[in-house]
Nucleic acid binder design. Structure first.
Lengths: 230, 230
DNA sequence: ATATATTTGTGTAACTATAACGCAAATTAA
DNA sequence: TTAATTTGCGTTATAGTTACACAAATATAT
């Protein structure tokens, strides 16, 4: 092609996980090449000439971490001229959610190490990755109220209070337990199971619940819109 | 740099305009180079090595059209390997709104022609630009309900029914005129002016109204959230 | 000139959703 | 055995939404 352009394109991913005990976590990898060698960074890498952007993120995530992704969407493209000291690099960043089941990052080939970090205790990060994580967190906050993506952070079966705690953590404000439950159950997409939740603390044992994704899809087609402000 | 990568990066812009008479329009330019020479396409072009993505869109818009942009945000990055017949091209697309005042595309240097097209009568478009416009329209629809971006499609002073018609057009459904007005005025960010609207049709003449952006910003800082479902 | 159609402005009543609570039941911890 | 904790279910007051009715001021048709 005629045009002279010296810009590289990468993909990165912000993967969020959640647990009742430690709240929201982010998956990071320890870089084993320069720049920022041995520093923590988001998983990602250069896009190959013939693969789509989505394929590129999925490949990198497999190579570097090996976790099962439950939800993935494009977040934002970061392109400030000086964000990479080596050269001009534009990064298309994806936003993903991982269930606790498939939480463990497996030993990987490309990264020195991969680990989940609590959002409140992030290490120093390479490049502009701190800003990127901030943007991703805002997306999570914004989106959880009008799309049922919270369930992509929980196991298939969960005690109701886990869902409630997830919303409290993500939204960063208190909710009325009773109103929250009424609202959620009223939507008709969460079902109570005939199964007791494993005991984790004092108090009356509760049931397990599950998200009925099929029902949500059906309702959505008929113009139903999820909303959780309670 | 070590990495071999043959991917080009461009920026494109979907600029929307609005008028009571013709509804929503999109700004298109007629290409004067291959591929798709003489075909209509979104304004845009290659990013220079040292300019930010935003600077690149603004530059291209000036070169090709010369309209004043009232609102601009990043929309999405399109990167399918075969979207450009020449080579692998990843395009970062921006979404913008233009007021009717600064509506006229001025004669430009880079494009053969630039013109506004009604959303319902778009010509055949180059590349995947039809899909891109569709995505942008969805963004407009989604965003107009929870951020006051509708005012970026109207002149500073407008008859109230223009705002109402804008929402009806964008949302694609009917609204109750009276409830809509109550809702909007109740938010406290639209002011009635002491000025009659110019007469455009039969019926009782109405006043002009204006959006108070300062007040909105102030309220927003205090946790106020715009919402228009009426 | 007069009647008709059109558009703006204001209001009210019924219904629905949200917010703020209380209390009993079933369990663990003291 | 008692206290603390957690779940489940319910009620009431308030706020918000929806569905209407009607008068006023103008252009248009007759």
């Amino acid at each position: 092609m005629k045009i002279k352009q010296e810009i590289y394109i990468t993909v990165d991913a912000v993967l969020f996980g959640y647990s009742r005990e430690s709240g929201i976590s982010v998956l990071l990898i320890k870089r084993k090449i320069e720049p920022f060698i041995h520093k923590w960074a988001l998983p990602g890498g250069f896009v190959k000439d013939n693969e789509s952007l989505e394929d590129a993120v999925m490949r990198e995530l497999n190579e570097e971490a090996g976790v099962k992704i439950n939800y993935l969407e494009q977040l934002y493209t970061f392109g400030k001229p000086d964000r990479d000291p080596r050269a001009r690099v534009v990064s298309v960043v994806y936003f993903g959610l991982v269930k606790p089941d498939s939480y463990k990052p497996s030993a990987s080939t490309d990264a020195e190490d991969a680990a989940w970090f609590n959002m409140d205790h992030l290490p120093k990060l390479a490049f502009d990755h701190k800003t990127i994580i901030q943007t991703a967190l805002e997306r999570l906050r914004g989106k959880i109220t009008y799309e049922p993506i919270g369930f992509d952070l929980l196991p298939a079966k969960f005690p109701f209070s886990d869902l409630e705690k997830l919303y409290i953590t993500v939204l960063g404000r208190d909710l009325d337990r009773r109103n929250f439950k009424k609202k959620v159950m009223g939507l008709g997409i969460v079902e109570e199971l005939d199964e007791k939740a494993p005991i984790t603390s004092a108090g009356r044992p509760g049931n397990l619940y599950k998200f009925n994704r099929d029902k949500y899809q059906k309702l959505k087609k008929d113009g139903f819109s999820f909303e959780m402000n309670a």
